[in-house]
Amino acid sequence: MTRVNILLLCVLILCALSLVTSRHHARRLTVELEREQARARQFDVEYGQLSLEQSTWGMPARVEKVARESLHMQLPAPSRVEVVEAAEKAK
């Protein structure tokens, strides 16, 4: 009887210890998960800021200004436009 009890006690202690370690493990993982989620949020914010920046730089108004003023581009007069038919291209 005593032996069984001692055995059970050992099992109990082992269980208790493993509970403690797994709890600890779980908490460490949660902390890690939290950190990654915070990073994900940070990236999300950054994505928003970058796409805002992209939209701002890429606004047609700015593109046109750069094309006209810095690159000195202009629309060709209709007389200088040649229309190529798709059929001709295929030949």
């Binding site: 796409s51 805002l52 992209q54 939209s55």
Partner: peptide, 9 residues
């Protein structure tokens, strides 16, 4: 898909 309105923190 070009942004016309974006919220940032």
């Amino acid at each position: 898909g070009d942004a016309l309105a974006i919220s940032t923190p």
